[in-house]
């Protein structure tokens, strides 16, 4: 049977196209353009060649042993030098020419220590507008060993969140020490000595029991109210519901 003319024509065109594609793909194009492995290897190389801006704490220790050993003992022991001083790889390379940055501004410390209700409880926070306004933080606190000048008189220096909550609650007039006894050491090294917490129902009953003396405290029958549960399993003592 004769091959139709159309097929002959198309066969030539198809052969040319396929041949051309194959030629380009497998002969003309260098392997470096089509090899994923090579592309990836060179991407990794390029990534690794990127400049480092933060030298890392160990680099700082090599020269500044005095400061860093002091920092390692204080509250800021977990901080990286460059967290405050900024990226200092250039300083580490060339200590004479490039001087490190040091934040002396009053705006800087509140980035961490300004009061913010979303910050975890117990993280030391102050209210920057009320806390010695205008004075730079570093006049009183050494950032490399930030011990308060005097042991804080007010619990709110660290427990601002609780203080702010309690201030608007019906327990606003109660002192922290009404319910907690605070060892003196807690004010210097907070985690070495914890304040006490009430541990019995009877403690709350002291004010809220039927027979208790304070007249304006809401009264309940301790024998029936709450069953076997402790008071603070339902009520948050720093913000008791009802009048908050």
């Amino acid at each position: 049977m004769r091959i139709p003319e159309q097929i002959q024509r198309l066969a030539i065109v198809t052969a040319v196209i396929i041949g051309g594609v194959l030629l380009v793909r497998f002969v003309l194009i260098p392997r470096s353009l089509i090899s994923d492995d090579l592309h990836r290897a060179s991407t990794v190389q390029r990534e690794l060649a990127k400049p480092i801006k933060f030298a890392g704490s160990t680099a700082c220790q090599d020269c500044h042993e005095d400061v860093s050993s002091r920092v390692r003992k204080g509250y800021h022991k977990n901080l990286s030098c460059e967290g405050c001083h900024g990226p200092e790889a250039r300083h580490a390379e060339n200590p004479m020419e490039v001087k490190p940055f040091a934040p002396r501004d009053r705006k800087f410390c509140p980035l961490c220590h300004g009061y913010d209700p979303s910050r975890p409880t117990g993280f030391p926070q102050i209210n920057p507008t009320a806390h010695n306004p205008i004075k730079p933080c570093i006049t009183c606190h050494n950032p490399h060993d930030p011990v308060p000048l005097t042991a804080p008189q007010e619990c709110s220096a660290c427990h601002a969140q609780i203080q702010r909550t309690k201030a608007v609650s019906s327990h606003a007039l109660l002192q922290c020490t009404t319910c907690h006894s605070v060892p003196a050491q807690h004010k210097k090294t907070p985690r070495s000595a914890w304040p006490s917490k009430p541990d019995t129902r009877a403690f709350c009953g002291g004010c809220h029991g039927k027979e208790a003396t304070p007249k304006d405290a809401p009264k309940i029958d301790m024998s029936t109210h709450g069953g076997r549960f402790l008071c603070w399993q339902c009520h948050y003592p720093h913000l008791p519901e009802g009048r908050g």
Binding site: Q45, R46, A49, P51, A55, G56, A59, E93
Partner: peptide, 13 residues
């Protein structure tokens, strides 16, 4: 850990 390209980048480590 050696950059073949971009030789301008020096590492401090």
């Amino acid at each position: 850990d050696k950059g073949t390209e971009a030789s301008g980048a020096k590492t401090t480590q």
